[in-house]
């Protein structure tokens, strides 16, 4: 399963706001092979979007800095490459789509022009060829009457259609990597199903590797080959979709899954995770989940490494496997 040279190899990515003691995103590592879909799942503030933005070189102009780490993608380190190298890469070999298509589209420009612009930014081709490519892309994302839609403005489209346009734009230059940050969160469920379907099919057709950032474990089960569960800036568990869902090891993964009501049947009272996430300017030094964890002990005041538990499965918990933990052993760990 492990390709000798993955498409994307992220190692030790840390992101910090100047002046804080602990990094916001801490030592994040993962690999992605061509054609694979990795889902990064976690709640607000876990650093999943920051990770994506850092990979695309989009932290410029924010108080956030990549402190350490490398991200090798087709021979280029995304984290240290010069801005013009990244500009040449973005929208071409690596593309990104966002949650809210309306704020990512230019409201004053016809959608055909916007897609053509994305093509012409990277390829020296005539206007009508770019427009033809735009029409072709709208067809590929299954927009009905694509030829006519080219001349419409974003406000004339529904939310689902706008997200299709974003996908068309992102895929117009056949990228090797597509990062999608909560692409369906703003959409209704029936429209979400259409978009997920589309992304799965396009992924299979084009071989584009995808990183999908989501908070929805249902979307993860549906889309991912591999999963990384993030909590407060760290990956706490990573593995194949089957490993993470069928053999969840980290207490946070278990808590997150227990917190979700089931569509399919009665489960009684929801088993929750107590408390709330640590504040970004006051991250604990040790295990960042310890203050909320039912399995915490004094040992958890030291940060647990993301240690392998079988092939491809890794867990950052001192007490994994939890079967060996005796209840009553728990100690309060200061937040």
């Amino acid at each position: 399963m492990t390709d000798p040279s993955p498409l994307l190899d992220v190692r030790g990515l840390s992101i910090r706001v100047a002046g804080t003691a602990e990094p916001l995103v801490d030592n994040v590592s993962f690999t992605l092979n061509a054609g694979e879909t990795l889902c990064i799942v976690g709640e607000s503030g876990c650093g999943k979007s920051l990770t994506a933005l850092a990979l695309m070189g989009l932290l410029e102009g924010t108080p956030l800095r990549v402190e350490r780490g490398s991200a090798m993608f087709q021979g280029i380190d995304l984290l240290s490459a010069a801005p013009d190298v990244l500009r040449g890469l973005r929208g071409d070999r690596a593309a990104m789509i966002f949650q809210e298509p309306m704020t990512s589209l230019n409201p004053a420009l016809r959608i055909g022009e916007q897609i053509a612009e994305a093509v012409r930014a990277h390829r020296d081709i005539p206007r009508d060829a770019a427009r033809a490519r735009a029409a072709e892309m709208l067809q590929r994302v299954r927009i009905p009457a694509a030829g006519k839609r080219l001349d419409e403005y974003p406000h004339q489209l529904s939310g689902g259609m706008r997200q299709r346009v974003m996908i068309a734009m992102a895929l117009a230059n056949d990228p090797a990597l597509l990062i999608a940050d909560e692409p369906t969160t703003a959409l209704d469920v029936t429209i979400q199903a259409q978009i997920l379907d589309l992304m799965r099919n396009l992924g299979a057709e084009t071989g584009t590797a995808q990183i999908m950032i989501t908070h929805d474990l249902g979307v993860v089960a549906e889309m991912a080959d591999k999963v990384a569960v993030m909590y407060a800036g760290r990956i706490v568990e990573a593995g194949t979709t089957a490993q993470v869902f069928d053999d969840p090891q980290h207490p946070y993964t278990l808590g997150l899954m227990s917190s979700m009501p089931s569509l399919a049947g009665d489960q009684g009272r929801l088993v929750t995770i107590p408390g709330s996430v640590p504040s970004p300017d006051d991250m604990p030094r040790g295990c960042r989940f310890a203050a909320r964890c039912p399995f915490a002990t004094a040992q958890c005041e030291a940060p647990p490494p993301l240690a392998p538990r079988g092939t491809g499965h890794a867990v950052a918990c001192w007490h994994a496997p939890l079967e060996d933990f005796a209840v009553g052993q728990r100690r309060e760990v200061p937040a």
């Binding site: 869902f245 969840p248 278990l254 399919a264 049947g265 009553g328």
Partner: peptide
Amino acid sequence: VNAAMAARPDAAQRRFALYSHARAAM
């Protein structure tokens, strides 16, 4: 939809029980 669709393997089921138990103790 029915319960079988969201069924988890026994090993996972046991681990969720562990979490639930520890959570209650906490």
